[in-house]
């Protein structure tokens, strides 16, 4: 489930009206790292699958923003 969070550093011009944001992060979805899906992956129950939006646990990515604490209440 670990969303691999990557960071990039936007250019901050001296004429920026607001204080610059030095580092911006984005989360990369798990399917980037999986390639062709292997068979017999571990699955959610149907009800959970309806909530998480995917049938296979490995693809579940709630895509939390960096400012949002990852709520682990509902799923793995």
């Amino acid at each position: 489930m670990s969303t691999h969070r990557r960071v990039w550093y936007p250019y901050a011009s001296p004429f920026d009206p607001c204080p610059p944001i030095k580092a911006k992060t984005y989360s990369t979805p798990p399917n980037l790292f999986l390639g062709f899906q292997p068979p017999n992956l571990e699955q959610f129950t149907p009800m959970q699958a309806l909530r998480t939006g995917t049938l296979w646990k490995v693809f579940y990515d709630p895509w939390y923003s960096p400012y949002e604490a990852p709520r682990e209440d509902d799923h793995s």
């Binding site: 062709f36 899906q37 068979p39 017999n40 149907p46 009800m47 699958a49 309806l50 995917t54 049938l55 296979w56």
Partner: peptide
């Protein structure tokens, strides 16, 4: 809700089986 869950599973499995035609268990 249960019917929607089963439908969702069927949709996901259909998409999966489109690319994995030989997967017997699926």
């Amino acid at each position: 809700e249960e019917l929607q869950a089963v439908d969702f599973v069927l949709v996901d499995l259909t998409l999966y089986l489109d690319t994995h035609p030989e997967d017997y268990d699926a």
